[in-house]
Design a protein around this nucleic acid. Structure first.
Lengths: 238, 238
DNA sequence: CGATGCGTTGATAACTTTCAAATTTAGTGG
DNA sequence: CCACTAAATTTGAAAGTTATCAACGCATCG
């Protein structure tokens, strides 16, 4: 059985910030930073940094999953292509996020660089060996897998809603993950968003336009979105 | 952060079979049965059996998650109700399946008995204590959480598809989980199926009728479905 | 029986996709 | 730096899919 697991760091660096930058967010991550650091520090010690240009593949579905990745800078998407050509995006990974953790031997999704990307690459066998003798590391892996499961459950709830609700949820999710006040800098295209939400690009575009005319958001450029009324967006979330 | 985790046993007993029955399936579960048994046997030793009548609550969203449950007989659904009254079903649990494993203190979904149900109830603290001193148990918990994540990912793929594809996937999933040849005995109502697939009962009903007229299935009674052409159903799966 | 719950079927409305075209943005070479 | 081409996004109109509203059938249960 193939498992594609993704782990989100509690400490999300700003896009393009150097990997070793101290997170400037004065948020809740601090109260368990020591735990977070032990896994992240281990990865930093064991890992090598790799660069991938925009739109290149990091790993492919069904390749052996020998490595685990953490985004240093840039953004990554994982995806699956169905037999009829439709593409479903599994997730977006921002700096600090971990992706590509497989339980079994093969990746169940492919991963691509959305922008030029730097990733920290860690050998899976090395991390497993560490987890075997360090219960803290093992626990963190478990916790993060569980977190990812929780995220999936929310995603599941999202996917049964209307286009408007899906887009609103997506915007709130992105705003939470890369906080810059009320503005969001989207690294991904409309097509990526559409394939993430299970909609078409036209529907995503129209929905954004509609949210803008309702004064819930503002779209100064296609990749930049300002949240004008978060509570309205939250209400759409069900 | 609230985590609702669910674990599916590799050994799925037939509905209504006694908990201690030796699984009669001559399938792939055997090659790691010793591992599977150690968790299941531990639960059996530590747990107490409880009964819940049809349509009663086993636990509620936001209740403290002190226990973990394994279905002995009957079927269970987990669900979440959105603020506008819509209900999304998180999963169906058949005999052998484990549900209600939370990472944090509270359940993120509610659980109800679909039919009269017997469940094995295990104190979470007891199982955690066991996992702390038995790496095999801890590993099994991790593996099963990962498995659940994998199932969620497939579910995610399912939810972006058409009504026909969703229903086909649902039928194949149920057929795989409770194998009785080509017939499926559904414990849940059309409303449950609809809330699981993110559709309305009318659409589910019409889709079943349509699949029947295409000779892909046969619906002798509303709760009993015979798969007549699995490859046709699989093709719909993308 | 009559009431009630569940499932099916029909007609219509709402929403999303599809197909097509216009517009804006980004990238490239002079 | 500007002009040009290609790519991405937005907008429009029509078609397709699913939801909604309504009615009917069927079984169960008091």
């Amino acid at each position: 059985m193939l498992i594609q697991t993704t782990i989100r760091s509690d400490i999300v660096n700003r896009p393009n910030a150097p990997a070793h930058a101290v997170p400037q967010a004065p948020n809740r991550a601090l109260d368990r930073s020591s735990e977070v650091n032990s896994l992240e520090q281990s990865m930093l010690l064991m890992g090598a940094t790799m660069s991938y240009p925009r739109n290149t593949e990091i790993f492919g579905e069904n390749e052996t999953a020998d490595y685990l990745y953490q985004v240093v800078s840039g953004s990554v998407r994982t995806y699956k292509v169905l037999s009829d050509g439709r593409r479903q995006i599994g997730g977006f990974y921002l700096p600090g996020d971990i992706f590509g953790l497989e339980l079994a031997g093969e990746h169940s999704l492919s991963a691509e660089a959305i922008t030029d990307v730097k990733v920290l690459v860690v050998k899976r066998t090395a991390l497993n060996a560490l987890a075997a003798r360090d219960a803290t590391i093992a626990h963190q892996l478990f916790v993060r897998t569980s977190s990812e499961l929780h995220r999936m459950q929310n995603r599941m709830l999202l996917l049964v809603k209307s286009a408007r609700e899906r887009v609103a949820s997506f915007l709130l999710e992105m705003a939470e993950r890369a906080p810059r006040g009320n503005a969001i800098e989207l690294p991904m295209s409309r097509q990526d968003i559409a394939d993430y939400l299970g909609l078409t690009i036209e529907t995503v575009s129209r929905t954004l336009t509609s949210l803008e005319s309702d004064a819930a958001i503002q779209v100064p450029t296609s990749r930049r979105i300002v949240l004008r009324n978060r509570s309205a967006l939250s209400r759409m979330n069900g």
